[in-house]
Design a protein around this nucleic acid. Structure first.
Lengths: 342, 342
DNA sequence: GTGAAAGCGCTAACAG
DNA sequence: CTGTTAGCGCTTTCAC
């Protein structure tokens, strides 16, 4: 099988007996062209199997109609969900999605360079390892970027994240009200603002009822590490009587470990709360009480912000804090059971 | 904040006092250029913050260095795993990954057109809904494509998939040997070759020990549909005494449903086997016996095949059937427990 | 080794 | 509405 010569608009023009620009106009939505010529052109195009070369188009329009989606932790179902939603959303706007999966450990410098060179029109940044300085680099190089589920103390940059603090606060007060005295926090990555804010909220929520956080362990958003951290937490007294994990993914790891390694019941022996409300949290085996992040809304807002920056060259940074929703299921022992929102 | 003018190789050339082509050569690995000029150019480039425009490069080299990854069912952890692996692999080869998430239901015609227009150098196709004719369209339009985890009866196209038939066969014989008489199959999508082959294997494996398949239900690779199908399967006697689900994702749904809706124990009351060996199968709550697909190897082979087609214009179609591995855990009742491979 | 020149395939003024 | 013209930023002969 041999490589076919690529068909250009010039070929179509020739065949249709019109100018090359006429052909071009047929494939630009807004250009004005008569029905008659258009039909001739379309006919010739179909016969030749012509398809506009989007690279040439990009070169001249200075727009690749491509967005970079940068993330990690694909094993946490939260992200596949985001990908799915983002894909749909951008597809609807006729943008392509370029995916960058960055290993959370260390080496993202190369990735950064790759992203910058990829000629994307914008970046949706969801990786925790891309810190403030990297975000700034994006802004400096003039490419629109919005941070999703990430916050950075530098206000030249748009960000959308959910109200992690109040999510954590709710957890703290809820657990305190349930009578827990030894609440442990299973943190995500050190570098992650979300994990820190959830912790801060937890501490304050606990404090609002005169309690304090009993212990903190690090799961780094990783399943196995969360299991290890749990074992450590429960290896010597005084044992926690509740664990708040910074993600459902880790919360599940906690539950599995508590049940399997320690033969502990949830919520009778230990209460567990997660964060995200991924589908797995609702599975009968877990019925995990958690804090829902509005994934759809996050993607929606981020997309809107990003697209506005791209289309209108509107570079004002804007932050959106989205409300979270407590989802009451059955992983917390309850003196009082409130209505579930699920 | 205002939009900066883009820096071109011409700007760099001017500043470095060399020709534009000299600059170009500095950024092509194989081009010959003296150390001295190169240093001058690189210095000027850095000062100006120059980055080669990969779109212009693509236009002239006729290569976007981009691969399309087409898939669906991101809620099935198998796919995020594939994405992660593929991303790493292509990154290493200096290719970008364009992601197309196609809704498994119906409407993929638009997607097909979008892919074809995206100027990718190649396609990794993992969506079940893209059938033979669509695959053919890729081949016709001359763009390298390899089907992954998909098989199509048209041998002009490269495909890599695992040995679904023998996986199913193993399940059939294993279940028969465990003494099961009423094995139900929970199928994936009707259009999916993988599901059909697994079924065929199951039937033959059962038959090899003089048994036959007791019932078949359709879960379409979807969690909720798998739950519904399970309820239906167990709603009236004779009840299955084992269920083989075409994916772990569905197998988990089966287990959850059996336990939660029917108060059945696994494996004491019903045996369950899955396919894929996603991480969740190993979680203590499930300890799902399953058939492992070699994800890494699949991606590896597919990538190699695709890259060869791209780089060498080698269009010979080639198929690779990868071996699967039975993973014995505890979701099947066992007169004999063999050594686990996990 | 280096520069000049010729496009890659397309869009966007600009006249007509 | 349509054709002509001029590039987008780069790679790649081709002389020198």
């Amino acid at each position: 099988m041999q490589r076919k010569r690529t068909i250009t608009s010039r070929d179509v023009a020739e065949r249709a007996g019109v100018s090359q620009s006429a052909v071009s106009r047929c494939f630009s939505p807004k250009a004005s062209i008569s029905e008659k010529t258009k039909n001739k052109v379309l006919k010739a195009a179909k016969e030749l199997g012509y398809r506009p070369n989007s690279i040439a188009r990009s070169l001249i329009t200075r727009s690749s109609r491509t967005i970079a989606l940068v993330l990690s932790h694909l094993d946490n179902m939260f992200y596949p969900l985001v990908i799915e939603k983002a894909s749909l959303r951008f597809q609807a706007e006729d943008y392509h999605l370029l995916l960058f999966v960055v290993p959370e450990a260390g080496d993202f410098s190369g990735v950064m360079e790759r992203i910058l060179q990829s000629q994307v029109d914008g970046i949706l940044m969801m990786s925790a390892s891309l810190t403030s300085s990297l975000a700034r680099e994006c802004v400096d190089s003039g490419i629109p970027v919005v941070l999703v589920n990430r916050k950075v103390d530098f206000d030249g940059i748009s960000q959308v994240y959910s109200d992690n603090y109040h999510g954590g606060f709710w957890v703290g007060s809820y657990l305190a009200m349930a009578g827990h005295d030894r609440v442990a926090y299973l943190a995500g990555l050190e570098s992650s603002s979300t994990s820190r804010h959830r912790y801060q909220g937890l501490v304050d929520g606990l404090a609002s009822l005169g309690k304090q956080c009993h212990a903190i362990a690090h799961g780094d958003y990783d399943f196995e590490q969360a299991r290890a951290a749990t074992r450590q937490l429960f290896t010597a007294p005084p044992y926690p009587d509740a664990v708040f994990a910074a993600s459902d993914h880790m919360a599940i790891a906690v539950m599995e470990t508590l049940r399997d390694d320690f033969n502990l019941r949830i919520p009778e022996d230990v209460s567990v709360i997660g964060f995200d409300d991924t589908p797995v949290a609702a599975w009968p085996s877990y019925r995990l009480t958690t804090v829902r992040q509005p994934v759809d809304q996050m993607v929606e807002e981020a997309t809107t912000l990003l697209l506005r920056q791209i289309r209108q060259g509107d570079f004002r940074a804007e932050s959106r804090i989205l409300p979270v929703t407590p989802i009451l299921r059955h992983s917390v022992r309850s003196p009082v059971r409130e209505a579930t929102l699920d």
